[in-house]
Design a protein around this nucleic acid. Sequence first.
RNA 1: GGUCCCGUAGCUCAGCUGGAUAGAGCAACUGCCUUCUAAGCAGUAGGUCUCUGGUUCGAAUCCAGACGGGAUCACCA
Length: 632
Amino acid sequence: MENLIKSKILENSEALFGTVVDEQFIQFQKTRKDVQGDLTLVIFPFVKLLRCNPADAGTKIGEFLVKEIPSIGGYEVVNGFLNLVIADNFWLDQLKEMHTNPDFGLAAPGSKPTIMVEYSSPNTNKPLHLGHLRNNFLGYSVAEILKANGHTVVKTQIINDRGIHICKSMLAWEKFSPVNAKGERETPQNTGIKGDKLVGKYYVEFDKRFNAEAKTIIAEWENGAFDGYSSAVKEEFIRLTEAKAGKDEKAVKGIDDKIKDLAKNQTTLLREAKDMLVKWEARDPQVYLLWTTMNSWVYEGFGVTYKEMGVDFDKLYYESDTFLLGKDIVIEGLNKGVFFKKEDGSVWIDLTADGLDEKLVLRSDGTAVYMTQDMGTAVDRFNDYPDLSGIVYTVGNEQDYHFKVLFLILEKLGYSWASNCFHLSYGMVDLPEGKMKSREGTVVDADDLMAEVVESATEMTKERGHIEGLSSEELEKLCKMIGLGGLKYFLLKVDPRKRMKFNPAESVELNGNTAPFIQYTHARIQSLLAKSGTELTDVNPSGINESEKEIIKQLTEFPSVIQEAGRDYSPSVIANYTYELVKTYNQFYQSVYILNEPDESLKMFRLALSSNVAKVIKTAMRLLGIDVPNRM
RNA sequence: GGUCCCGUAGCUCAGCUGGAUAGAGCAACUGCCUUCUAAGCAGUAGGUCUCUGGUUCGAAUCCAGACGGGAUCACCA
């Protein structure tokens, strides 16, 4: 309709305004609820052209449109806004059209370029937490939304499986894990501990022992015992200690941190971890075996969590595979003159001309840094998928600078696809008490949280659900759907770019702007449809009322909502749209009879309307990774 | 300190490609289940859109500055 009006005005602009008008002049907006009309044209832009007051300009355009477009039944000009009344038949036709289309709102699959969506990519030393939930739900949903927009999507993640941090947990396990009667050290099998949690336990164990050892060393130094340490270390310690004199509290703390770092570098534990990394790079069989074993525990543990989350991946990338390619690219870039080498052998890129800094891309000892492997991974991906047009990186906004630099480097290296790489930068998730801090033990574990919301949903469902006749498997499935749906919706309804506050109590709420509220509406509609038992063919009511028209209007917006969500990489657009639709539908549901409507034609129309609302709810929620039940 | 992000009702958030009287939910208060699922609906109350300037017929929205909060500036990832 908007396009029709637009083209009519553009075609006849000479006759109407005596000049050719720019398309920009034609601005539509939704008609306010308290005035008459279905679509509003803003007429301020035309006022100057017509050299008359807004009321006259509106009247002139209104008369023209009523004459030209049969579906426009009338108009009213209020305060410079032309409110157009569109005939019921137009809305009825809209409903009939979507009614016959099971894929309403979705673009044809494969009609747009292939895009890779990276998400999750956790540190393999720590179990997944609340922040990862936002990441995973967001990445998964964006992938689904892009598919709905016609893109072919490859879901992926980069597995952070190499580096000194991995060696730390390996070392701690080897040194500190208790040995049982059978002579075995702790494994997921013999302890029943989830693999990622067990590895995480040893990472924490390493950190604990590591700090304790550093503390002991500092104590020795403070007592003047420097046996076994180099004179350089001794001098540095004395210099730092003396520097504390007369400084304020904050400065002293900074110096203490430096002393701690100095001591940490002298620990046997760190030296052993570094030795292990060297052995790993040399593919020492024993270290490699330990590495593959412990990694497999983590993957198994993560696999369980991913399954519970309902997310999946089409292709995995491992840093241990891509960091070497990254090094090759650095050499290539060095030859091209994009990078430069410093005297100590380290390789850098100078981005000062672009308003950034110099950035290291290869260490002086020739080992790879984060940036190196990210370059390698990106190139690897475009090699693997020749049709790939771009990559969406779902990574927290604390890495904004990293990705700015990465994309700039790729561009300077001459990769044409660099401009199609996008950092989907999302905000942190805070708790009511503030930031999550592992040191203070306030990190919310992903597995625990998912179990809690399902448990809470189970209680609520038993209390008020319509669950007679459901098997225990069906009930369990339903409660999972409600609990996890609620959690996903809670994390996705907020604009991803914004930092958000996570309130555990609110996340299991069932009222208001929540998934259970939406799921409930879907279940009610399904109940109506199941009871009606007839094919919805006859959709010709004698008239449609305001609330019915309002629902159709909102339904017709669905395709453009999917487009907007895709363009902005924002599931929250879908969430908020669905919530509005459901609210409108519930008002309708409470104000009229549907199944009990005596007029057969009207009843069929209302059932058709309801069934399309249900269809859109189901599609929309699917794009958020949320299932909807037929009863609850 | 440099760079980037954010600031809307008591709380959590929409609205931001400029448009009519700034909206929801939660919390508080009042009603509605002998008719289709009350996990619902109707209503009351709650605002200096952080502040100050600027652009404009028109600014929560765009621009500049101030204030407040956060992130980031590693041979960490």
